[in-house]
Measured scan of single mutants.
Amino acid sequence: GSKLPPGWEKRMSRSSGRVYYFNHITNASQWERPSG
């Protein structure tokens, strides 16, 4: 298991139950796992 880039964390969408990734530094969110 590799770590996520700085700022990123795994989140669960309440509406759909899907996992997404959220960056608390930039407030960005995306479905794809961030690389870096």
Rank of each mutant, 00 (worst) to 15 (best):
L4T: 02
P34H: 01
G17M: 06
L4N: 01
S29N: 05
S13I: 13
S35G: 13
E9W: 05
S15A: 12
R11E: 02
G1I: 11
Q30N: 03
R33S: 07
S15V: 14
Q30Y: 05
G1F: 07
S16W: 07
R14P: 14
V19W: 13
N23C: 09
G36V: 13
K3Y: 13
Y21S: 00
R33E: 10
S35W: 10
I25H: 11
N27R: 14
P5L: 05
S15Y: 12
S15F: 11
R33F: 14
E9Y: 06
P5Y: 03
E9A: 06
Y20S: 00
Y21D: 00
F22P: 00
F22M: 02
G7M: 05
T26W: 05
S2E: 14
R33K: 10
G17F: 04
K3M: 13
Y20R: 02
S2V: 11
S13Q: 12
R11T: 02
G17I: 03
P5E: 05
A28M: 15
L4P: 15
M12C: 15
Q30E: 02
K3D: 15
Y20D: 00
S35E: 12
K10W: 07
R11D: 01
P5F: 03
P6K: 08
V19H: 08
S29Q: 08
P6R: 08
T26K: 03
R18W: 04
S29D: 02
H24I: 15
S16I: 06
M12R: 14
G1K: 10
G1W: 03
S2D: 15
P5H: 04
Y21F: 06
H24E: 06
G17T: 04
S2L: 11
V19M: 08
R18I: 07
F22E: 00
G1Y: 06
S15D: 11
A28E: 15
A28I: 15
M12P: 04
W8I: 00
K3V: 13
P6W: 11
A28V: 15
A28H: 14
G36L: 13
G7E: 05
N23V: 01
G36M: 13
S2A: 12
T26E: 04
T26N: 05
N27V: 04
N27M: 13
W8A: 01
S35F: 11
K10L: 14
I25W: 08
E32I: 07
P6G: 07
W31D: 05
K3Q: 14
N23A: 02
A28K: 15
N27E: 07
L4I: 04
W31H: 05
N23S: 05
M12I: 15
I25K: 07
E32A: 09
H24Q: 10
P6L: 10
Q30H: 04
N27S: 08
T26I: 04
G36N: 12
W8G: 00
G7N: 07
S15C: 15
Y20A: 00
K10A: 13
S16M: 08
G17S: 06
V19R: 04
P5K: 02
G7L: 02
W31T: 06
R18A: 06
N27G: 15
N23Y: 04
Q30S: 07
P6H: 10
K3A: 14
W8L: 01
W31G: 03
Y21V: 00
W8V: 01
G7K: 02
M12G: 03
G17Y: 04
Y20H: 02
K10S: 08
N27H: 15
A28Y: 10
N23M: 02
P6N: 08
M12H: 10
G7Y: 06
S13A: 10
V19A: 08
K10M: 15
E9V: 14
H24P: 09
E32G: 08
G17L: 06
K3F: 12
R11I: 06
T26V: 03
L4S: 03
P6M: 09
S2M: 11
R14K: 13
R18G: 04
S15N: 12
P5V: 02
R33N: 08
T26P: 00
W8E: 00
A28T: 14
R11C: 15
S15M: 09
P6Y: 14
N23K: 01
W8D: 00
S15Q: 11
V19K: 03
R18E: 06
Q30L: 03
R14I: 13
N27P: 00
R33W: 12
P34I: 01
R33L: 11
S29W: 15
W31S: 06
K10G: 05
N23E: 01
S16E: 08
S16V: 07
W8M: 00
R14F: 09
R14D: 09
S13N: 09
S29F: 15
S16T: 14
N23I: 03
S29R: 14
M12L: 14
N27F: 10
R33T: 09
I25A: 09
K10E: 14
Q30T: 05
E9N: 05
A28N: 09
P6V: 10
P34K: 01
N23F: 04
T26Y: 05
M12Y: 15
P6A: 11
P6D: 10
E9L: 08
